[in-house]
Design a protein around this nucleic acid. Structure first.
Lengths: 339, 339
DNA sequence: CTGAAAGCGCTAACAG
DNA sequence: CTGTTAGCGCTTTCAG
């Protein structure tokens, strides 16, 4: 067992008394090689502790079998859950997951350019906006892009989302059915397709039903911003009796503020609704009414796209899945008689 | 802009009227090359949209500049936080993060073997046990191992932890000072060094102080198991008045069960203490007393080790950092007079 | 300082 | 079926 240096196919070939290409074939699934030869080669390879160098393999296949995954905000459990699923599904598909931080706001994206130079099979962006520069760069590098939980009109990218319009409308209807009079919407990151779709559908459904125009505050999909937004909302003289937060993280922040800073009875005095149905939503402390996004199916679709996009030069597909409303205790669903 | 094929150093060389090795030098930081030549090459490279193929580069350097990161349980916010920090620090260090699922219990680890064949600069395991087989395999592949939040006596691996002994003792003292009579310990994964150290130090400190032997239940570091364990504990006739859970995830589960299933006033009737100081611990609903592990410093040390271990054949280092007790409302810190 | 040439370790025609 | 021969795209001596 020589530790100092690596055992190469060459070494195995020499030892087994065959050519180096025979060794290669022995390790290639569909290759034409005699049963016995293969067995013999595999055996000596094993004995020598040989392992094919995947970098070399990737070099001439032109593909690394790696997909880049950019995450903006791991503070959001929905993306953690997604990342978890993704790591398993990609693994099963024989693909490696190259994780990189993708600052959604503020700073520039640093490493992403370099990542592309690894001949990625695809780039998956978890709730990260696609700049046209990046799209262009990926096109040049011939790396297909799949947006997760974001859409785009850019024909160079594919996307997987759940139907935000339907979701937001369903929530609006639920709130109306509960007899809420003063409704507020807590927005996520401005400019994200996700927020745009939820916001627009929510507002338009409400106005179609003749309800008053909702209040609007921005929570940026993040806890701190959402806490501040909630305070602004609850400090008003015409305090809302319902807040639809564009994701669960903000909804939980809202519950915390409403309950512990304003002493409100969430679910009775104030309804709070989230989006995503993250694990915490079902905890008794929160018992959050929320709209469930089908993470498992979304991930499956994402992996399917990664596969399908392989040969295609610039094919693209926009997948939209259905979610469902999960009613829990944080929202009143029966109309209350005005006192 | 020829989209079909990649631009190689060869192309740039031809276009710039230099040799291909000149192009290589132009892109190599410390290489001997004339200012002007470099400038000219960089310029034409830019014009052509050339990007060095990192797979090729890695192939002859023998190192991929990637580190494998195995995570067992992303349901634990402590590891999410760690992963987040790690992705940034590695990025800054010019290293790529290859994430792979490392089933801590149950099924076999699948992809990890293949991962190693990418000529990783290092393998980081986040709270994942090290089998001697894996250690042996890494030694052969010449990939240094760094355990995070786990230690080992295996001389082939390095590790970064915080001082679990001190932590557990501090908590024991805190509980004793609070006048608790019937103390319980909720254990994490059996066989993990992390749990072993906390458990042993906790028990021994208590016995040294002449306190009664604590009750013991296993929560496996996970929410569901911890909920079940809590139920077992609280259903006893001699119900404990304090539970030290070996991590925050289990502590939060315990709070939920105690409060919503047993109607207990956590912090008064029952003290619950966690470990890690994850973000949720500070939320008002939980207000969890916990022992803070210095994630940022632990990650920095981990990255430092990855760097230092580069040349070394089989050097190893075991880093132990200090944490600190964070007292919040979930534990009683003043002795209560017996009724 | 720069070009020519020899690999890094593997895969993929191409002949036998 | 198997060995020989070219590369994949880059880095790195080695001459000049």
């Amino acid at each position: 067992m020589n530790d100092r240096i690596f055992i190469t196919a060459q070494d195995v070939a020499r030892e087994a008394g065959v050519s180096q290409s025979a060794v290669s074939r022995a390790f290639t699934p569909g290759a034409r090689i005699a049963r016995d030869t293969r067995a013999h080669i595999i055996a000596t390879a094993e004995r020598l502790g040989y392992r094919p160098n995947l970098l070399a393999r990737s070099l001439n296949s032109g593909r690394s079998n790696m997909v880049g995954v950019g995450v903006g905000d791991l503070n959001n459990p929905f993306f953690v859950q997604t990342l978890q699923l993704l790591s398993h599904r990609l693994d099963e598909a024989g693909l490696r997951l190259l994780l990189f931080p993708a600052e959604t706001g503020g700073r520039p994206e640093p490493s992403i350019h370099e990542i592309l130079d690894y001949r990625l099979n695809a780039l998956i962006l978890l709730s990260v906006g696609l700049t046209s520069d990046l799209a262009e760069e990926c096109r040049r590098a011939q790396v297909p892009i799949v947006l997760y939980n974001r859409t785009t009109t850019n024909p160079d990218a594919s996307s997987v989302i759940s139907d935000n319009m339907v979701g937001a409308r369903t929530i609006a209807a639920h709130l109306l059915a509960g007899g809420h009079q003063k409704i507020a919407y807590m927005a996520g990151t401005e400019g994200s397709s996700t927020n745009a779709q939820r916001e627009e559908a929510f507002f338009s459904h409400l106005s179609q039903q003749g309800a008053a125009m909702p209040l609007l505050e921005k929570g940026e999909f993040r806890m701190e911003a959402a806490s501040a937004a909630t305070r602004r909302l609850l400090a008003r003289p015409d305090r809302p009796d319902a807040i639809f937060c564009a994701n669960d993280v903000m909804a939980i922040a809202a519950i915390n503020v409403a309950r512990y800073e304003y002493g409100l009875d969430v679910g009775r005095e104030l309804s709070i609704i989230g989006y995503d149905d993250t694990p915490m939503a079902s905890w008794p402390t929160f018992s959050l009414t929320t709209y469930s996004q089908p993470a498992a199916r979304m991930v499956s679709e994402t992996v399917r796209l990664v596969h399908n996009l392989q040969g295609m030069p610039s094919a693209h597909e926009n997948v939209v899945l259905e979610g469902s409303l999960v009613v829990r205790g944080s929202s009143r669903s029966v109309t209350m008689k005005p006192a």
